[in-house]
Simulated assay, not measured.
Amino acid sequence: MTRPASDSPPLFDLDTKPDFSIERKRLAAGEGPICGLDEAGRGPLAGPVVAAAVILDEGSIPEGLDDSKKLTAKRREALYDVIMKQAHAIAIASVAAAGIDDHNILRASLEAMRRAASLLSVTPGHALVDGRDVPPGLACPATALVKGDSRSVSIAAASIVAKVTRDRMMSRCCTVHPNYGFGAHMGYGTRRHLEAIESGGAVARIHRMSFAPLKA
C-alpha cells in the first residue's frame, strides 16, 4: 500500500548538498549560460560587502562545492583555486563601507551582485541569486533562491569566491591596522574588535558608521 505524503512541515532542515539540477533545467529551456550570484560580508562592522558571479563549465564542475559557511577556511581556499581554473567565467565586485553607510546593507549587497554580473566576460542568459531578492538592474532574467548556496553549485561557487576574496581583503587591512585584528575576525563584532574600537576609535573608510555600536 502506498503511504500518503505528509503535509506536516519538517522539524529541522536536512543537510542537503548543492547540485547542478536547477542550472540544467534552465539550460534545457534555452536560458544559458547560467551564472550564480552571492555575496559575503553583510554582518560585519567593518570592511566591504563583496559579491561574486560565477558561470561554471558543466563538463568541469569542481567537486565538494558547498555553502562557504559550511567549509573550513583551508577548504575554501583550495576550492577557490579550483574554481578560478575551471569556471567558464568569474567576476568580483564590492561596495565599500561608505557605500553601505550611504544606502543600507541590503541595497549595497544587491548592488555588489549587480556589478559582479555586469563584469562577466560572458553575458549570462539567466542568474541564480542567493537569498530572497533579485538585484535591480541585472542585464538578464534572474531567480532568487532562499538558501541557494545549499541548492545550486553555481551559487555555492560564487559564495566561496566572494568569501575568500573578502577574507583576503580584511587580512590586508590587518597589516595596516594590526591593533584591530581584522585578519582574525574579518570585521565581525567580536570582543577583541569591540575593545579595539573602544580604545582606538573607528577607522575611517573601513568601519561602517551606520552599524551599532558605531552608530551610537
Rank of each mutant, 00 (worst) to 15 (best):
G181Q: 03
G201F: 01
H185D: 00
A184P: 04
D15L: 09
D38K: 01
P178H: 00
G59W: 09
R132D: 13
S118R: 04
R42Y: 01
R115E: 14
T2H: 04
V95E: 01
R24V: 08
G36T: 07
G131W: 01
G99W: 00
E23L: 06
L14A: 14
L194W: 03
L79K: 06
S21K: 13
K147L: 13
A196V: 00
A156R: 06
S121M: 08
M209G: 05
S109D: 08
A28F: 13
S21D: 14
A212S: 15
L110H: 00
S6Q: 09
R166F: 06
M1S: 15
S94P: 01
A98G: 07
S150P: 11
R115D: 14
R172K: 15
S8Q: 14
G36D: 06
V176W: 10
A91G: 12
R192Y: 14
T72V: 02
I155Y: 09
S60N: 14
D102W: 05
D67T: 10
D167M: 07
H177F: 02
L65F: 08
K70C: 00
S68P: 05
I34P: 02
R75G: 01
R26F: 15
A158I: 05
P141M: 02
G137K: 03
D57E: 15
L194F: 02
A40K: 02
V146K: 13
A96Y: 12
A157W: 01
A112F: 07
M170W: 13
L71V: 06
A96H: 13
G200S: 15
P9I: 10
G47S: 10
I22C: 04
S109C: 07
I160Q: 06
L138Y: 02
E31N: 14
A216D: 08
L120E: 12
L128A: 09
A96T: 14
M186T: 08
D167F: 07
V146A: 14
L145I: 13
A46R: 11
H193T: 05
D81M: 10
S121W: 08
V54C: 11
A162R: 00
K147D: 15
L79V: 04
S171N: 03
A117E: 06
G47F: 11
V82N: 04
T143M: 01
A112C: 05
K147C: 13
S68W: 04
P44Q: 06
G137D: 03
G125P: 00
I90Q: 01
D7G: 03
T190A: 12
A158S: 09
L11W: 07
I92N: 05
P213S: 02
